Amino acid sequence: MLIRRIPRGEPFAVSRSHCETCQTKLGARDLAPILSWLVQKGRCRHCGANVDPQHLYVELAAFLPPLSALAGYAALHRADPLGLWSMDPVTFWFDCVLGWVLLALAWIDVICFRLPDVLTLPLLIVGLLEAVLSGDVDAAGDRALAAALGWAGLLLLGVAYRRLRGRIGLGGGDAKLLGVGGAWVGCSHLSLVLLLASCFGLLAALGGIFRGGRVSATMMLPFGPSLAAAIWIVRLAL
């Protein structure tokens, strides 16, 4: 819903799900992830119109955050197989929320080169809230500082690039997303997030070349997906 509606400027907080063709309000039987798509063969139950397969792709991708969170925790406790069962459920659900929102942000950035504040800023606040709820005052302060450094650092870099080259190189949303990374991983891991994101961005550019595309100095590539992937990987490795 977020990925479909935010790029179009449509309301998502209070508006019910509906068929994009006939506008009929959808019930629970129409919204079961993956199952509804399979049962209805990718068509609206009311008007028979084809449903964009993007819905199915996003629903499948949404399984990755919880599965990778469990896999990451199991890897950290591979010497103690029973350690997985002692996993803090609060931390697990915080990680899932992070993964799901990063997924939405990355997908939206690919669609329209935009990282909407309505997702980025709440995610930053939730990361700081998790640190506060942990009861570790030092960790909370460290994450707040990392959020400020990440946001301000990338913002200043973008301003400097614009002054030197006369065009936008980094959007304000990218700076905010790095701030989100700081709020979730802290100062000591912020540089690793930026390094990984830069490597992923470079690989994306090289991938465009190998697929036969032309990459120039003025070509726009979304940096949000690279940042999102880096934040998620570093978070799981903590």
Results as ranks from 00 to 15, higher is better:
residue 150 G to D: 08
residue 77 H to S: 04
residue 33 P to G: 13
residue 229 A to L: 04
residue 132 V to T: 05
residue 62 A to C: 14
residue 76 L to I: 12
residue 66 P to M: 04
residue 155 L to V: 15
residue 120 T to S: 05
residue 72 G to H: 08
residue 76 L to Y: 14
residue 103 L to S: 00
residue 58 V to Q: 08
residue 34 I to T: 10
residue 196 L to T: 13
residue 78 R to V: 08
residue 171 G to S: 12
residue 34 I to D: 13
residue 27 G to N: 06
residue 111 I to Q: 12
residue 186 G to D: 00
residue 29 R to G: 05
residue 185 V to L: 02
residue 99 G to N: 08
residue 151 W to Y: 10
residue 140 A to H: 06
residue 30 D to K: 15
residue 130 E to W: 13
residue 194 L to K: 04
residue 170 L to F: 10
residue 74 A to G: 10
residue 65 P to C: 00
residue 194 L to R: 03
residue 96 C to M: 07
residue 46 H to D: 07
residue 127 G to D: 01
residue 220 M to F: 12
residue 96 C to H: 04
residue 79 A to Q: 12
residue 110 V to Q: 08
residue 181 G to H: 04
residue 157 L to K: 06
residue 182 G to W: 07
residue 108 I to G: 03
residue 57 Y to P: 01
residue 120 T to Y: 00
residue 102 L to H: 01
residue 107 W to T: 04
residue 111 I to N: 08
residue 88 D to A: 04
residue 174 D to I: 00
residue 83 G to I: 09
residue 186 G to R: 00
residue 11 P to S: 14
residue 127 G to M: 01
residue 15 S to K: 15
residue 174 D to Y: 11
residue 93 W to K: 12
residue 166 G to R: 14
residue 3 I to K: 03
residue 173 G to E: 03
residue 152 A to I: 06
residue 149 L to V: 09
residue 190 L to A: 06
residue 198 S to A: 10
residue 151 W to L: 04
residue 230 A to Y: 06
residue 209 I to W: 09
residue 100 W to Q: 11
residue 85 W to I: 13
residue 83 G to Q: 13
residue 153 G to I: 06
residue 219 M to T: 15
residue 238 L to H: 09
residue 62 A to F: 14
residue 19 C to L: 10
residue 109 D to N: 06
residue 190 L to Q: 02
residue 142 D to L: 00
residue 2 L to M: 14
residue 56 L to P: 00
residue 175 A to F: 03
residue 206 L to W: 14
residue 93 W to L: 15
residue 126 V to A: 11
residue 170 L to S: 05
residue 185 V to D: 01
residue 233 I to M: 09
residue 210 F to V: 13
residue 99 G to I: 12
residue 134 S to V: 10
residue 231 I to Q: 01
residue 50 N to A: 14
residue 13 A to R: 14
residue 19 C to G: 05
residue 170 L to Q: 07
residue 110 V to S: 10
residue 105 L to H: 01
residue 124 L to G: 00
residue 192 L to C: 08
residue 234 V to G: 02
residue 15 S to P: 08
residue 179 G to C: 08
residue 5 R to I: 02
residue 171 G to H: 09
residue 117 D to V: 04
residue 167 R to P: 01
residue 137 V to N: 03
residue 7 P to N: 11
residue 210 F to R: 13
residue 155 L to W: 15
residue 236 L to I: 10
residue 31 L to F: 13
residue 17 S to P: 04
residue 221 L to F: 08
residue 79 A to S: 08
residue 2 L to V: 07
residue 177 L to V: 07
residue 225 P to W: 12
residue 175 A to P: 02
residue 106 A to T: 02
residue 14 V to K: 15
residue 76 L to P: 05
residue 95 D to I: 10
residue 203 L to A: 13
residue 126 V to Q: 07
residue 197 A to P: 03
residue 127 G to L: 01
residue 69 A to T: 11
residue 216 S to N: 11
residue 135 G to H: 14
residue 111 I to R: 12
residue 237 A to R: 11
residue 159 V to C: 12
residue 75 A to W: 15
residue 235 R to G: 01
residue 217 A to C: 14
residue 150 G to Y: 05
residue 187 C to I: 11
residue 184 W to Y: 08
residue 214 R to T: 15
residue 41 K to C: 15
residue 10 E to A: 05
residue 91 T to E: 09
residue 237 A to I: 13
residue 13 A to V: 10
residue 153 G to L: 02
residue 16 R to D: 10
residue 172 G to W: 10
residue 55 H to D: 05
residue 172 G to T: 07
